[in-house]
Amino acid sequence: MTKSDYNQSVKTHSDSIYRFVLKNIKDADKAKDIVQDTYVKLWAKIEEVDPLKVKSYLFTVAYRTMIDVIRRDKKQIPFEVADYNAHLHQDGYSDLSEVLQQAISQLPEVQRSAIMLRDYEGYSYKEIGDILTLSESQVKVYIFRSRVFLKKYLISIEHVL
């Protein structure tokens, strides 16, 4: 890809990459660092990356960089020990979107990434599998489980409210 393609990818995809990372890592500064690292890696391999596949490449690099950061910082909250009452805050919920944001924050990282790539970016199961280094079947399983979890979460909220 050319320098122009690179700049175009910054303009087109950096917001999506940033959103994807920020929703996962919940830290704006680190998310920005990861986005910058992602583009630094892209720039280093600008000759090798196909312009038509740059978005997938960016998400793949961003995801792996994010995983490295998460493991390094050990701030990932395992699904098994997640606090299911963490979503109960005193101010109440403004809308369904906020509830869903709270819900996906409770998902395991891989499920959260899969469902965000599915809903935000519209990737197919195979594309998500390529980015997350999963098989297509694994992606389906994770997304199905995520949907079930979100449904249960919404029902629990309804009960609370």
Binding site: S14, Y18, K32, Q36, S97, L100, A103, I115, Y120
Partner: peptide, 25 residues
């Protein structure tokens, strides 16, 4: 109906450091 609601709505988050990433052409 609930399952129809468990899809993340589009949300725009702007990455405000694009200029730092752009390369001079």
């Amino acid at each position: 109906k609930i399952y129809s609601s468990v899809y993340l709505p589009q949300e725009t988050i702007v990455f405000d450091q694009k200029k730092a990433l752009l390369q001079q052409e």
